[in-house]
Amino acid sequence: MVTGATGVFVIPAVPYLQALGLAKDDLVQALGLSFTVSTVALAIGLAKGGALHAGGLGLSLLAVLPALLGVWAGQRLRHRISPTSFRRWFLICLFLLGLELALRSVW
């Protein structure tokens, strides 16, 4: 319901999947699948509602390139750190993202 109402996938999925205690590779794969399915569902909903226009497709496809670079860098980093460090930094990054969102609403 939260995702459907806000279009934000992180809040319901990430805490739930992190609480399952998955191994770091399994957690990243589960998050990737969750975000992919959620993004496709959102795109279908936006297209049906007339809010998704083909004019932005080129720019969207261009934005995939840095995302793929980030995935590649993340995989290399994930294989070099321990599961404990991975969980710690995963939660720290989630906290920082939440803090940034909260501060953005103030400014």
Rank of each mutant, 00 (worst) to 15 (best):
M1D: 13
T3M: 14
G4R: 08
T6Q: 05
T6F: 05
T6H: 10
V8R: 03
V8A: 11
V8L: 12
V10H: 09
V10D: 06
V10A: 06
I11M: 10
I11V: 15
A13W: 01
A13V: 05
A13M: 08
A13T: 04
P15H: 11
Y16L: 14
L17G: 10
L20F: 10
L20P: 03
L27R: 03
L27N: 02
V28N: 03
A30M: 04
G32W: 08
L33M: 13
F35M: 07
F35D: 08
F35R: 02
V37W: 02
V37N: 11
S38M: 15
T39P: 00
T39F: 15
I44H: 07
G45C: 07
G45W: 05
A47L: 05
A47M: 01
K48S: 14
K48H: 13
K48N: 15
K48P: 05
G50I: 05
L52P: 02
H53V: 01
H53G: 08
A54C: 02
L59W: 12
S60M: 09
L62E: 12
L62V: 10
V64Q: 09
L65D: 04
P66I: 10
A67W: 03
A67F: 07
L68E: 02
L68Y: 01
L68S: 10
L69D: 04
R76L: 07
L77A: 15
R80N: 09
P83A: 11
S85P: 04
R87K: 12
R87P: 04
R87W: 13
R87V: 08
L91Y: 12
I92C: 10
L94K: 07
L96T: 00
G98Y: 03
A102F: 15
W107T: 08
W107E: 09
W107V: 14
